[in-house]
Amino acid sequence: MIKINSLTKNYTTYIKEPGLKGSFKSLFIRRKKVKEALKSVSLEISQGEIVGLIGANGAGKTTLIKILAGIVFPSSGEVSVMGFNPWERNNQYRRCMSLIMGQKAQVWWDLPALDTFLLLKEIYEIDEKLYKENLEFLSETLMVKDQLKTQVRKLSLGERMKIELMASLLHRPKVIFLDEPTIGLDISAQKAVREFIKSYQSEFKPITILTSHYMEDIKELCPRIVIMKEGGFVYDGPLSNIQKMMGDEKCLTVTTKDSTFKLTIPRLELAAKTSEIFQNHDVIDLNIHDPSIENIIESIMKYGLHST
């Protein structure tokens, strides 16, 4: 189980004025800027749950994951993952946890994947039988059996991501942090990774936190989502509730001679607004539909939950 209580993280950065003058000035005077990456957030996740963490760039998703993985220290607050304090970096905790970052390679580029796996087998003290079993299961499910003896740097982006996934799951972790695992992958590779995560989740029931900018990942994998905005949580609940919450609204896509525009309006104002549009514009086509999850989440990320 993961328990997060009033977790805060502040980063200190330095501001440098642009240009040569600014560069010289920064040699003597530096202006500090404190950025609140996480603002007193609290959360509970049970064993076997998979939670989607979504938010715009800089919302604090990766910071939260790094704290949970024990890479960075929080400024304040409490965290317990499977009863461990992550930043104490207890070896027992590190043996049951895994972090996969789509934008950062963790396997060694100059070695074939199998060499890395053998090293990880020793580091994680994986039993020979379990190692063989996992290697077989992972390489078959991810369809990378033929790539295991090739230097990782010579593999395609999709293949490398699959190797990263394999390397992170060899020790069969009970807690998995997936930070944008499908970033930069083509549609079929994204689908394969999603399918794999789904089958791994149903087979081994780990706690999984997934961050992604692709709504397909979230829709396919996460029954529960947490939406982050500027370091805070603006929504934590079932994905299915999102559409229900916005049930009082309708989306209009209007095509005129000159342009196409979209509107989200209250259901009760639909008739009045539609006739107003027909009066004021030369309408060619008008389409009325329920707002999509993507639109709702985008709106929540921009304006928060109450002002959508």
Partner: peptide, 12 residues
């Protein structure tokens, strides 16, 4: 470059 992360994740 952040690749130091891996050493903090390994149980060694």
């Amino acid at each position: 470059d952040g690749s130091f992360n891996r050493y903090l994740l390994y149980p060694i």
